[in-house]
Simulated assay, not measured.
Amino acid sequence: MRIVAVVVTYNPDVALLAEVLQSVGPQVQGIVVVDNGSGNANEIRGIVRATAAHVIANKHNFGIAAAQNQGLAFARAEGYSHILLLDQDTTSAPGVVGDLSRNLQALEIEHGAVAAIGPAYYELNSKRQTRAYRAKGLRISRVSLRGRSQPMESDFIIASGSLISLAIMEIVGGFKEELFIDLVDVEWCFRARAAGYRCFLSPTAAVDHRLGSGTVGIGSRRIAVHVPIRNYYWIRNALWLARQPCTAPAWKLYFISRSLAFLATYTTVADKPALRLQLMCRGIWDSFSGNLGCFKRGRA
């Protein structure tokens, strides 16, 4: 197994990015950083040179899906067998890639080809560990990974930290660039599942990850808060995904209900509520109008 880490950056905290690269470097056979037109691109290049990684420097932000596909093309051209996707703020504990690769090989022996395997990441803002998600009928079960030692199937896994073989990518296809950001990984996992390939989480693989820039409390729950434009992308893509044949009925209901919850929540407890409402309404319109891709002001 020859693995290249594909790290997508956009205006990253360069000190944290250095930690990300240093933590994964000894565990993989190569690193490629795909930068989406960051304002601190020169600093990024300096960090990349110090870690002997390769850099693909985009002049503009083409979105995370396009950047991941660029990393995938690099992996093919350089003869790698697997890609490890990483966000700019995901640090890997020692041995996590070995854990993922061993479990992936064992799962392939047991189940045949597997779509992807990801770690049981710890979300630093909400201070919660990820869970496995499984749809059955019109219900979605959330299964804790605490105390477990064997990989668990999940309808989707987040991209950051996921290990995927290039052979599976050839069958399922790359990431859908029209979504730009938000739910890109979910759409790919649903598409893989529809093709007969399952995703798994390894409870014994540990990474730290950050969702959003912070959290706000809603009763006993805490939800991630992103910059307002991310509300646009999430609602637009969620309502688009709810209409796709690869999406299970329970997830269709989830995306619709969650979009309504977004409208109620982010216009009452988050900053810039008027702007968020405007962007979410625009996201609804663009989803049903088929206006995907990068957000463009004034587009009808």
Rank of each mutant, 00 (worst) to 15 (best):
Ile235Asn: 08
Phe255Leu: 13
Cys281Asp: 09
Ala238Asp: 06
Arg276Thr: 01
Arg230Trp: 13
Ala274Ile: 08
Asp208Val: 07
Asp271Asn: 12
Ala250Val: 09
Ile218Asn: 08
Tyr232Met: 01
Val207Ser: 07
Leu263Val: 07
Phe255Pro: 01
Phe255Tyr: 14
Ala238Phe: 05
Pro249Leu: 06
Trp234Arg: 13
Asn231Thr: 09
Ala248Ile: 14
Gln244Gly: 11
Ala274Asp: 12
Asn237Cys: 11
Met280Ile: 06
Leu211Tyr: 11
Tyr233Pro: 02
Met280Gln: 01
Ala242His: 05
Gly212Tyr: 02
Lys252Val: 03
Arg230Cys: 10
Phe262Tyr: 14
Pro273Lys: 06
Asp271Leu: 09
Leu253Tyr: 08
Thr265Ala: 12
Arg258Pro: 00
Ala261Cys: 10
Ile223Pro: 06
His226Cys: 09
Gly217Val: 12
Ile256Gln: 13
Ile235Lys: 07
Ala264Ser: 12
Thr247Ser: 08
Val207Cys: 10
Gly283Val: 00
Asp271Val: 05
Ala270Asp: 07
Ile229Lys: 09
Leu241Asn: 03
Ala264Tyr: 08
Asp271Ser: 14
Ala264Gly: 12
Arg221Ser: 11
Tyr233Cys: 02
Asp271Gly: 12
Pro273Cys: 02
Pro273Val: 03
Arg276Gln: 01
Ala248Lys: 15
Pro228Ser: 10
Val216Met: 10
Gly283Ser: 06
Thr247Gln: 06
Leu253Ala: 13
Cys246Glu: 15
Leu277His: 07
Ile284Leu: 07
Tyr266Cys: 00
Gln244Lys: 15
Ile218Thr: 10
Arg230His: 13
Gly219Val: 03
Lys272Glu: 10
Ser257Glu: 10
Trp285Arg: 15
Leu275Asn: 01
Pro228Cys: 08
Leu279Val: 03
Pro273Asn: 03
Pro273Met: 04
Val227Glu: 15
Val225His: 03
Arg222His: 13
Arg243His: 10
Arg210Pro: 01
Trp251Lys: 09
Ile223Asp: 09
Ala274Met: 12
Arg222Lys: 15
Ile284His: 00
Arg221Lys: 14
Asp208Glu: 12
Ile223Cys: 11
Thr267Gly: 04
Gly219Met: 04
Thr215His: 06
Ala242Ile: 01
Arg210Lys: 13
Ile218Cys: 09
Ser259Leu: 05
Leu211Ala: 14
Pro228Tyr: 02
Arg236His: 07
Gly219Asp: 05
Ile256Tyr: 10
Gly212Trp: 02
Ile235Val: 15
Ile218Asp: 11
Gly283His: 01
Gly283Glu: 00
Ile223Tyr: 12
Gly283Pro: 04
Val216Arg: 14
Cys246Thr: 15
Leu239Gly: 05
Pro273Thr: 04
Ile284Tyr: 02
Leu277Ala: 11
Ala274Gly: 06
Lys252Ala: 07
Leu279Cys: 05
Cys246Ala: 14
Thr215Tyr: 09
Arg276Ala: 01
Ser220Ile: 12
Trp234Phe: 15
Tyr266Val: 06
Val207Pro: 02
Ser259Pro: 03
Val216Phe: 11
Leu275Phe: 01
Ala274Cys: 08
Thr268Tyr: 00
Leu279Asp: 02
Arg243Asp: 10
Ala274Pro: 00
Thr215Ser: 08
Ala224Tyr: 08
Tyr233Glu: 00
Val227Arg: 14
Phe255Val: 03
Ile223Phe: 13
Ser257Cys: 13
Leu279Trp: 00
His209Cys: 04
Leu241Glu: 04
Asn231Ala: 11
Gly283Met: 00
